[in-house]
């Protein structure tokens, strides 16, 4: 704890900004990824494979490709702003939200919904009382993975956000800046903090992942 007392206000600013970015990205992605994952899980359209490929693209593409096109796209609008790096993060982490939800919707299947519908439950009712509880594990894993992945983002943010303190200088970028300034002590403190957080998050994720889908659904 003593080492963290040595952090400068600019370090805390970056920590706050990073949490804010990860939080906003997680909320936006849960809203955006749910309908996409739903469609992927239940549609029989021939476009499914193509949509699935597009969603998985950020896993394969180097951050430079995303960063390059996003910079051109957002140039003189959202480039170098907080909104800009939120847009970048949402695209970059899209597969981390869609894939666990897709998996969890598929495991649930149509059956529970058909039963609910036959009992007269409306769409929103079905979602709230059937999908949310049954697929809670999927939502938690998606949210945790997106949050964690955004904490670790670097290349895209550096390209479309630069390194503007209080606006786009998130932790990963600040650590890079500290190493350039040869400020190794600050770089160590922040890096060790990130390692601890990453470890914690991954333990939470794997702790849940190892349970079977049925247990995930029925736990209270």
């Amino acid at each position: 704890m003593g080492t963290f007392a040595m952090l400068q206000p600019s370090d805390w600013q970056a920590i706050g900004l990073t949490l804010q970015l990860a939080g906003v990205t997680t909320l936006v992605l849960l809203l955006l990824a749910t309908p996409i994952a739903w469609w992927l899980a239940f549609s029989s359209s021939r476009w499914r494979a193509i949509v699935q490929a597009i969603v998985a693209m950020p896993l394969v593409l180097p951050p430079t490709v995303l960063g390059f096109y996003l910079l051109l796209l957002l140039s003189n609008s959202f480039a170098f702003t907080f909104t800009g790096i939120v847009i970048g993060s949402v695209i970059y982490s899209l597969p981390f939200a869609v894939q666990p939800l897709h998996e969890s919707f598929r495991t649930m299947g149509r059956r529970p919904l058909q039963i609910a519908a036959s009992l007269g439950a409306g769409r929103w009712d079905q979602f709230r009382t059937i999908v949310l509880p049954l697929c809670r594990g999927g939502f938690v894993v998606a949210a945790t993975l997106v949050f964690a992945h955004t904490l670790g983002e670097f290349g895209v943010i550096l390209m479309i956000g630069g390194s503007i303190p209080g606006e786009t200088q998130v932790l990963s970028v600040l650590i890079y800046d500290h190493t350039e300034a040869l400020n190794y002590r600050a770089a160590h403190t922040l890096s060790l903090g990130m390692i601890a957080v990453a470890m914690l998050v991954l333990i939470i994720v794997y702790g849940r992942w190892s349970k079977s889908p049925l247990q995930l659904g029925s736990e209270r």
Binding site: L71, S75, N76, S77, A79, F80, T81, G162, I164, E167
Partner: peptide, 8 residues
């Protein structure tokens, strides 16, 4: 280059 893309 950043200024050309609208950096503040």
């Amino acid at each position: 280059a950043q200024v050309q893309h609208g950096a503040p």
